[in-house]
Amino acid sequence: MNIEKTIPALITNRIKKYQSKILFQRRDGWSWKQITWLDFERDIKSMASFLLDLGFGSGDAAITVSPNRMECLFTEVAVCFLGGVAIPMEGDEFLERIEELAKGVRIKFIFTADATIANRVITLFKSFPDLGKIIIFSYNDLGKDDRIIPYASVLKFGLLKRKQLEDSLTKTSEGVSPDSPAVIFYEPGSNGKVSEKKVAHLDLIEALHLMAKTYPFIGEEDQSFSCLPLASPFEKFINYLALYMGSRIVMAETREDFFEDILEVKPTVVFETRNGLEDICSRVLSDAGEKSGGEKLRRDLGNRIKYVLTDSPPKDWIKNLFSKSGASIIEVPELNKLGKL
């Protein structure tokens, strides 16, 4: 029986189970930095302590405008620890709807990897009556406005606050309701109107539990790898499956990073969208003959790949190419079905 009903409960149990086991790896110059489950706990609780200290609580919203990267996942988990709501958005969509969002959602924080986004929000800061800070994932192009704080500084401030807030943080995370929304997606409809799609904690946990039973061949000894730049439910939640299963995670931030890093990471499992798979295969075939395409694909993906989890079935020629490489493509429909309109 699955006893976990919220994201905080899931993450807390996995941290207790895996502790010093490696969870994340990320490139740091010429080397790779390894992040354990205990490191993960320190950072999400430091982030949560920072947010809690500035008045963030149950029902408050934080927008993340960023490709799926480690900082973004840590942030969204920290928001969920406080019973808050994460709203993932793509840059263009956010800029188009920024004034509408300012009027319709109680936004306390905005997280972004893009200085252009941060500076645009500054010009409209007064339009967000509840907005506290803008947190940017990079030091690059950081201006002098004290309303913009680098992510690394947030973790340092939060770590200092964590001791005095530990009891409040524990009480808050344990009090998160399974039925409360964890994430809200805004999706354009066929009539041109934007729909709000809410995903509750319990809905996500039950989907992950079902996936763990459906795909038992993916486990804690696997190395996952992805490059997922958009804000769809699949792209946002597929790395939660790795968290659920205890697998190691690497998240490339660009397609160029993907092809460079994967040769060193040598993953056994790749998370990728249908469109992403077509891009990967087209690049591989651009300088490989049809007969050697499968072998080249396997080499280009690190030579250990066993499974590719994707959001929807790819074209037949892509299936055939991956089959020749020795990898199985598996559609994961559970994640895009999440949420109530």
Rank of each mutant, 00 (worst) to 15 (best):
I63T: 12
N119C: 02
G91Y: 08
M89R: 10
A62H: 07
I122T: 06
I110H: 00
F111G: 03
M89W: 05
F81L: 12
G83I: 06
T112M: 01
F111E: 02
K126W: 01
F125W: 14
K126A: 05
T112N: 02
C80K: 12
T75F: 02
R97T: 09
V79N: 10
A86V: 11
E71F: 06
K108S: 15
R69M: 09
G83Y: 10
F94R: 04
P67Q: 15
G84Q: 13
R69H: 11
S66Q: 04
S66Y: 02
L73E: 14
V77C: 09
N68L: 13
F125S: 11
N68C: 10
D114E: 09
R120M: 07
T75N: 01
C72I: 06
M89H: 05
V105M: 03
V121Q: 01
T123R: 09
I117P: 03
P88Y: 01
E93F: 14
P88R: 03
A102T: 01
A78M: 03
L82Q: 03
L82D: 04
P88C: 01
I87M: 03
K103D: 10
I87T: 01
K126E: 09
F128W: 05
E76C: 10
T75S: 04
T123M: 05
I63M: 14
F111R: 02
G104D: 10
L124Q: 02
V121K: 01
L101T: 00
R97H: 12
E100A: 13
L95T: 07
T64Q: 11
A62R: 06
C72Q: 14
N119W: 01
L95E: 11
M89D: 05
T75D: 01
L101Q: 03
F125Y: 15
P88E: 04
A113R: 07
A86P: 12
C72A: 12
A61Q: 14
G104M: 13
A118M: 06
C80F: 09
K108E: 15
D114Q: 09
V105Q: 03
F111L: 03
A78Y: 01
E99H: 07
V79A: 10
L82W: 09
M70C: 14
L101A: 00
E76F: 08
F109N: 00
R69K: 11
F109Q: 00
D60K: 10
C72W: 13
S66N: 05
